[in-house]
Each structure stands twice: as C-alpha cells, then as structure tokens.
Amino acid sequence: MKVLLVCAAGMSTSMLMKKMDAYAAENGIDLEVAARSFSELKDPKADGYDCILIGPQISYQKDKVVKKADGLPVEVIPMKDYGRQNCPAIFELINNLIA
C-alpha cells in the first residue's frame, strides 16, 4: 500500500512516517509512506497513492485535500492516535479507507 501523509510543515508527521515504516516492517506489511506539507500537495493520484491521511493540525484543509485527491480516499488522523503515534489504530484507519 502507498500512503501519503499531509501536514502543516512536516516535522511531527515525518516522525510518524518513520514509526509507520518500522511498524510495517515488524508486521510484514508492504508499505510505502511519504509525508508532504499541504503546500507541496500536487497530484497524489498520479503519484500512485492508495489513500491520504491528514494530520489533525490541518483538519480544516480536508475539503481542499479531497479536491486535490481526485477520488482517492482521504481521512484526518484522530488527534489521540496522531499524538501517541498509535500505528495499530492508524493502520486500521488505512485498511478501512482502502478496503
């Protein structure tokens, strides 16, 4: 699966991205994850992403992300899961989006 994380600037989301990579490796999950700031979001569908997760700090941008997503599933990561970097819950969210 190929997941795009969208955030404000990328600091905390890049930490989450590394934790997701480690979790995927430990659990045999085929994952390619990237983090981009909202301002860098161009054409995620053309880049082959399966879904987009938005950091809760920019949840107010969800409608704009949905428009740029061109039909890709988009969801905001719940604040508690984002803050705790709760990979099991985040992967459950991903699975529900792309199922």
Results as ranks from 00 to 15, higher is better:
E32K: 11
N96C: 05
R84D: 07
D47A: 14
P56V: 03
K80E: 06
Y49P: 07
V74M: 02
E75S: 13
I98M: 04
V66N: 12
R36W: 10
L97F: 04
L72E: 09
K67S: 11
Q57D: 00
M11L: 13
M79D: 03
P73I: 03
M1I: 11
Y49W: 10
K67R: 08
A35D: 09
L72Y: 06
F91V: 06
D81V: 04
A22R: 13
Y49N: 13
P73Q: 10
E32T: 12
V3L: 13
E75Q: 10
R36V: 08
K68G: 11
K19A: 01
G83M: 09
N95V: 05
V74D: 04
G55W: 01
A99M: 08
K18Y: 05
G10Y: 06
N95D: 13
A46W: 14
A46D: 15
D70R: 14
P56L: 04
E92W: 08
S39I: 02
S39Q: 10
I52P: 00
L93R: 07
A46Y: 12
R84L: 12
S59C: 04
G83L: 05
S14K: 02
R36G: 03
G10I: 06
M15P: 05
M15T: 09
K2W: 07
A9N: 09
V66Y: 06
